[in-house]
Amino acid sequence: PECADLRALAKHLYDSYLKSFSLTKAKARAILTGKTGEKAPFVIYDMNSLMTGQQFVSYKQNSVPGQGQEQNKEVEIQLFQRCQFRSVEAVREITEFAKSIPGFIGLDLNDQVTLLKYGVHEVIFSTLASLMNKDGVLISDGQGFMTREFLKSLRKPFCELMEPKFEFSVKFNSLELDDSDLAVFIAVIILSGDRPGLVNVKPIEDLQDNMLQALELQLKMNHPDAPHLFAKLLQKMTDLRQIVTEHVQLLQLLKKTELEMNIHPLLQEIMKDLY
C-alpha cells in the first residue's frame, strides 16, 4: 500500500508538471532531434542570423509595455533582457507547480516564500538542461535554437553567463531522466529543509522525505537498468547550488557594471540576500 501511495504521488506531480510547464523535455528532445514533423527551429549562430531570426521567432515579452525602448540597446543587453523575461515566466510556472505539491500550501507562508526564493533557480537550471544539447539551447518555446558558440562569442561578462549551464546540462542529460522523473526531482529540490531563514523546518523535512521515497521508487521503476541513478541525482543537487551561487554573483556584477540594464523586480527580490 505504501508503494501505491508513492506511485500516486509521482503521478500527481507529473500531471501538475505537465500543466505548469510550457515546454516539456519530451517535446524539446523531439524538436532537437527533428522528430516533430513541424518545421525545424530557426538557428541563431551569429549577429546576422540573430537579426534575421527576430522576424521568425516571436517573443512573448514583446507585448509587455516598455519593451520598445529596449530595441535601441546593445545586442547583449537585449538578449539578457529576454533571458530575464523568460526567467520571470519560469518563476511563475514553478510557483504554480510548487502550490500543487501536496502539503506545500499548508506550510507557513514565510517558509513558502523562502523555499521558492532558494529553489526557483535550481529548478530553472534543472529544466533548462532539457532544452540544451552540447551545441546550443532551444529558445522561444522551441521556435529558435541559439548556439553555444554564439553565446560564448558575446562580449564579457555576457559570454560567461550560459557556459556553466551547458557544462552542467551535458552531465545532467547523461542521466537520461524523462519528464516524469524530473517532476518528482524538482519537488524534492523545492522542499529543501536546509534553506536559510526557515521558520518551521520539520514539516518541510517530512514532506521532502516522502518526495525522496517517491523519487527513489520512480527511478527504480522507470530506469531498472540504472541502479545508482538515485544517488547520482542527489549529487547533482550540490552542483545546482554551486551554479546558482555563481549565477547570482554574475547577476550582481552585471547590476553594478551594466548601467543600461534593468534587473526585473521579481528577480531582484529573489537575488537579494540570497547567498
Binding site: V64, G66, V88, V91, R92, T95, E96, K99, L109, N110, Q112, V113, T114, L116, K117, G197, H264, P265, L266, E269, I270, K272
Partner: peptide, 21 residues
C-alpha cells in the same frame, strides 16, 4: 519577509494571475 518579497508573495496567493510587471 512578506514586505521584501511582494511579487513572490502575490504569486503564491493569487492563482495563476499574470504578473504585473
Amino acid at each position: 519577509l512578506k514586505e521584501k518579497h511582494k511579487i513572490l508573495h502575490r504569486l503564491l496567493q493569487n492563482s495563476s494571475s499574470p504578473v504585473d510587471l
